[in-house]
Design a binder for these strands. Structure first.
Lengths: 99, 99
DNA sequence: CAAATATATCGACTTTTCCCGATATGTAGA
DNA sequence: TCTACATATCGGGAAAAGTCGATATATTTG
């Protein structure tokens, strides 16, 4: 993944928002309480909150995943996405040193 | 300036490259040696290195300036651009804390 | 002030991104 | 296996970004 693609992934308001939501799943996705938050948040929950079509949200999550910001876990018919905090730390360091 | 616009400014290969060049002006712009590097690098030097038209380079620098990554100084008929390191530090912190 | 030079802005065209609906794929349960 | 549901992928139209050439706006110098 090129450096520029990392920034392209962040160059969209909705995608930024989704990353912020995923930072506090308990607060932003109370609907998933009964299934727990360890595995992440499923696409449907994110779609409901983003108010975009299912295909768009799926695509956006894929972009974020390719850029490394989220990790996906398939469980049954659901795919759960959660942040990969290490990616943010890496990017933070890259910006303060290399860039 | 919105957060997303900061990332949009970085979501372009040429603009990223220009920022990298400006990190080591002495190395990347030897042609400007006689005028010194304190004030920054003028548009013409950047254009020559970027191999794009003057208008494009000017536009790109303006985008980087609006996002806060570079500062412009007009001196005579030249406009010199230099990095604002504080902006990178701010962004780095934002990514490791807020984002 | 006229000419020369550096940069900025404008208008247009091309490429990329955004975002959708339709459809395909994967999984669970009757 | 048939159906239902969650997600992924595909194809396309609209909007935004990339990039150019032409032109406008400084600024310096003769």
């Amino acid at each position: 993944m090129e450096q520029v693609d990392i920034f392209k992934a962040l160059a969209n308001q909705t995608r930024l928002q989704m990353l912020e939501w995923l930072k506090e799943p308990e607060i932003n996705f109370p609907g998933q309480k009964e299934y727990g938050y360890d595995q992440g948040i499923c696409v449907g929950q994110l779609q409901a909150k983003a108010n975009l079509t299912q295909s768009t949200v799926s695509e956006y999550l894929s972009i974020l995943q390719r850029a490394g910001f989220v990790k996906a876990t398939r469980k049954g018919q659901w795919t759960y996405y959660k942040r990969d905090e290490a990616a943010f730390e890496r990017l933070s360091k890259l910006i303060s040193t290399t860039l």
